[in-house]
Design a protein around this nucleic acid. Sequence first.
DNA 1: GTGGTCTAGACCACG
DNA 2: GTGGTCTAGACCACT
Lengths: 123, 123, 123, 123
Amino acid sequence: MFQIDPLSRKPIYEQLIEQCEAFIQSGLLKEGDLIPSVRSLSMDLSVNPNTIQKAFADLSTRGIIRSVPGKGNVVCGNAAQIISDKNREKLDEFLSLLRLLAGSGIPREELIEYVNKAYQSHF
Amino acid sequence: MFQIDPLSRKPIYEQLIEQCEAFIQSGLLKEGDLIPSVRSLSMDLSVNPNTIQKAFADLSTRGIIRSVPGKGNVVCGNAAQIISDKNREKLDEFLSLLRLLAGSGIPREELIEYVNKAYQSHF
Amino acid sequence: MFQIDPLSRKPIYEQLIEQCEAFIQSGLLKEGDLIPSVRSLSMDLSVNPNTIQKAFADLSTRGIIRSVPGKGNVVCGNAAQIISDKNREKLDEFLSLLRLLAGSGIPREELIEYVNKAYQSHF
Amino acid sequence: MFQIDPLSRKPIYEQLIEQCEAFIQSGLLKEGDLIPSVRSLSMDLSVNPNTIQKAFADLSTRGIIRSVPGKGNVVCGNAAQIISDKNREKLDEFLSLLRLLAGSGIPREELIEYVNKAYQSHF
DNA sequence: GTGGTCTAGACCACG
DNA sequence: GTGGTCTAGACCACT
C-alpha cells in the first residue's frame, strides 16, 4: 500500500503523510479503517521507526487519524474534510507556479488542457 | 528592487535567485545590465554578504549572470532562455499540485479563471 | 583519503572537487558509495565545514553526488560519465598549454613520452 | 596588435602579459623593439591604464621589457630565453591536465596527433 | 570600488 | 549522527 522514494529530496515522513492523505481522499481509506502499524511499515519500507512515528504524530495532531489503545491507528471521521481544507491552502503555491509557467512560453491552451484532465479523472 | 521575506521558510538565497530570474523574464533586467553589488544588496536587505554571494554564484554557474572582475555581475545574453527552460521543468510539480486541488473541492471554473488571469498579465 | 594543500593558490574547495572526481573516475568511489561526512572531513583536513560544504554543493548540483537526508552524500549513478564529459571540455586549455611548451624548446619526444606514460597508468 | 577578451575569466593584465610573451617568442617582437605605450593601449583596448601598467610592471621586473626614458618600453635582449624558461615551469600543469584527459576516454592517438601538430606549426 | 574565498560558530531539519 | 542555511567578519585579486 504505502511506498516511498528514498531518492526523492522530499522528506520520507512527508511522503508518508501525503500518501496517507491521498488514500483517504480517494476513498481507499475510510473512517474507522485501521492503518498499518509503525512496526510493519518500518519493516516493509526499510525506514527508521522514528520516521514513521513522526508522520503518524503529525496526522494525529491534525485530527486525521487517532490511536485506539490495543488496536492501532484508525482514520478519523472528518479526515477527508480536514485534508481538503489543508490542500486549499496550497493555492498560493499553485498560483506562483502558474505564473512561472505562463511566463516561460508554455501555451495557455496546454495548461487549460491539464486542468480539464485533472477534473476528468475525478468525476 | 530586490526584496526578501526573512520569515519565509524559503531560504533567502533562493528568494534572491527567483526574484532575479523574474526580473530578467519580465524584461526589467536585460542582457549586459549590471546587477546591484553584493555589498549594496547586503546593506539594503540587511542580509549577510555571503548569502547574496551564494545566490549570485548559483546564477553564475547556470549561465544567467557573469561576473566581470572589478566591475560587478552582468546579465548574460541567453539568460531568459535558460530561465524559461528551467521553469518548464517544474511542470510535474504543477500537475501534482493541480491534482491535489482538483480533489479538494475547488471548482474547475475557478482554476481555469486563474490560468486565464496569469496569461492576461503577460500580454 | 582526501588531502589538501593549504598553500596552493588553487582554492581548497576546488581541490576537494577535483580529488573527489578523480576518486570516482579511478573507481575508488562507486555508485551508491557514501562520501566522508562534512564534519569528519572538516576535522581531518583542518578545514572549515563551510568550505567542505561548498565543494559538496557543487558536486551535488552537477549530479555527481546526491545528499540523502540524515544519511550523508552518496555517489550518483552516472557520475563518472558526467565527469568525463566535463574533463573533455578542457581540451582547449590543453592545446594552448601544449603550444606554449612546444614553442619553449621542450623536445617533441619528451611530450610524446609523457602522453604514453599517462595512458600506461590507466590500463 | 594586442587584443583582449573582456568576457574571459582570465584577468586582463594576464592576457596582456601572455600576448606580449607570445609576440616575442614568435619573433613578431624582437630585442629593442618599442612596445605600444600605456596610454595608446589603454585607449585602443578600452582598458583602465592601471591594468596596462600592471602588466608592463610584471614584464619589467622579470627582465622581459625595460623602460627607456623619453622613448617608451622596449624588448630586452634575453627576453625570449626568460619566457621559455617560465613556460617550462608549466609542465606540471600540462601533466595533470594530460592525466585528466587520459582518464576521460580520449584516445591516446588523438593526443599524440595534437602533439605532432603543435610541433609542425613551429618548424 | 568590485567579486571570490575562507574561517568561526550558530541553528534547523532529517533519520 | 547527517546535510543545509545563515551570520559576522577577514583577506585577496582585479579594475
